[in-house]
Design a protein around this nucleic acid. Structure first.
Lengths: 192, 192
DNA sequence: CGCGACGTTGATTTGCCTCAACGATTGTGG
DNA sequence: CCACAATCGTTGAGGCAAATCAACGTCGCG
């Protein structure tokens, strides 16, 4: 199992002891995903906190008109889950699927709680992870209410350049809240 | 000092022991705010995790054109802070001010860390608080990318009815990412 | 090869903004 | 207690940003 990236990731917040990484190894499951493979479907509870080792996943909803809206992407060393459903056990409104062939590590609710019980260090780490997520999301809200589509696209290119070259434009458009056609027109203007 | 609301709030996540509430009391400072009084200005580090006992605050930025954008409101039993600046000590990009006369309880970074050290229970509680904030922010992003201005306004009325009757429309418009004029036109259509 | 996913382009429409003007209300100082 | 400014909400004319709809070219893949 390719556990090392997760150990490095968690350890970058607070270094882990031998017993903690060992406990972690017992609780985590590796999974290999094909392109377009789902790990969460609307209507089902989200039973995994998912860490991306390699590849890229996206979380999205399908609205009443059948249109997909990408809420977030998660690439290497990032987390993706519907936290609300994960904790409550209620059906999720979201889908999560692989955009590329990916390798992920997953933890189920009960096992995550066991980690928390084993060492409060995990509480501390996941607290910081959640706080950092808040900052990123807040930033995104700010961009949505204050920037034009073109400005948001340029900001996305700056901030997520590594993603922008891997994702189809149709997904980027959806993430930015615009149509693929309009993104195409923006790109035409932008390209020099 | 009116500490009880904070104790009740934290206790609703995990009940606190006598020693913990006592420790909390030593670390928290009460502050009474007039309407429009600032507790954070752009360019200064955010030195407080702020809990709202009564009243209502808003966090906003001022863009290059001098236009304010409301990022979030916090009313009774809610938290408001620039977490990023709070932890890093770097200058904030945000303003936080009272929308109404308010009473707040504040904790400084060093005191919050002392709380964490005193009992890991506080880590657990603030982890959940951050996670809940993530859910709310994610929801807001979803609304921004998938709903029209009118739909967002109606969703806001449903979700934050208690706030919508207290806030001037100019602030609500800014929060929704639209102009006050356009909100006025939406309200005209909506009123039956 | 032929089909589906993806990106582009153009014509038209619509949602929302800009700017300007005007009441209504509140607050503040003389 | 009144005069005046400031804040807030509303309305209308016109303009721009972005959506919609339709068509077409390209590429990778079964």
């Amino acid at each position: 199992m390719t556990l090392q990236p997760l150990i490095d990731h968690l350890g970058s917040y607070i270094p882990l002891k031998q017993t903690e990484t060992q406990f972690l190894e017992e609780k985590v499951t590796e999974r290999r995903l094909k392109r377009k493979q789902h790990i969460l479907q609307e209507g089902f509870p989200c039973r995994h906190y998912t860490f991306v080792v390699s590849g890229c996943l996206r979380m999205f909803v399908i609205d009443v008109q059948g249109i997909e809206h990408n809420i977030l992407f998660a690439a290497e060393n990032d987390w993706i889950t519907d936290i609300s459903s994960f904790h409550s056990g209620k059906p999720s409104r979201f889908f999560i699927e692989a955009v590329e062939p990916s390798v992920v590590l997953q933890i189920e609710p009960y096992d995550l709680y066991a980690l928390y019980t084993h060492s409060y260090k995990f509480d501390k780490i996941f607290k910081v992870i959640a706080e950092n997520k808040c900052v990123a999301l807040q930033n995104r809200v700010l961009q949505m209410i204050s920037l034009t589509a073109k400005e948001r696209y340029l900001a996305f290119l700056e901030e997520y350049h590594h993603l922008s070259v891997r994702l189809p434009n149709v997904h980027i458009a959806s993430y930015l809240g615009i149509t693929p056609e309009f993104l195409s027109k923006i790109r035409k203007e932008t390209a020099y």
